[in-house]
Amino acid sequence: MSFTSFADFLAMGGYAPYVWTCYGATLLTLAVIVAGLRRQKKKLMETIRLQHPERQAVAPGRIVVKQTAEDS
């Protein structure tokens, strides 16, 4: 353990603001990424659910080749 007391640990040898803002920023970044993931999933599920019952996704059209008059 490189710190004798908790207060000493918090002070971070006088560099507390720098070290803790960095750790805070890291936590925030990770949280933002995870939140973004979940929000994206929720939004996707909703749009798919809404889209699902009403509008049938446009099924691809089939190609039908009809040979017309062979004589010409």
């Binding site: 099924a59 691809p60 059209g61 089939r62 039908v64 080749v65 040979q67 010409s72």
Partner: peptide, 9 residues
């Protein structure tokens, strides 16, 4: 000579 129709699905 040939007619191709795209059938609506």
């Amino acid at each position: 000579d040939q007619q191709i129709a795209i059938q609506e699905a």
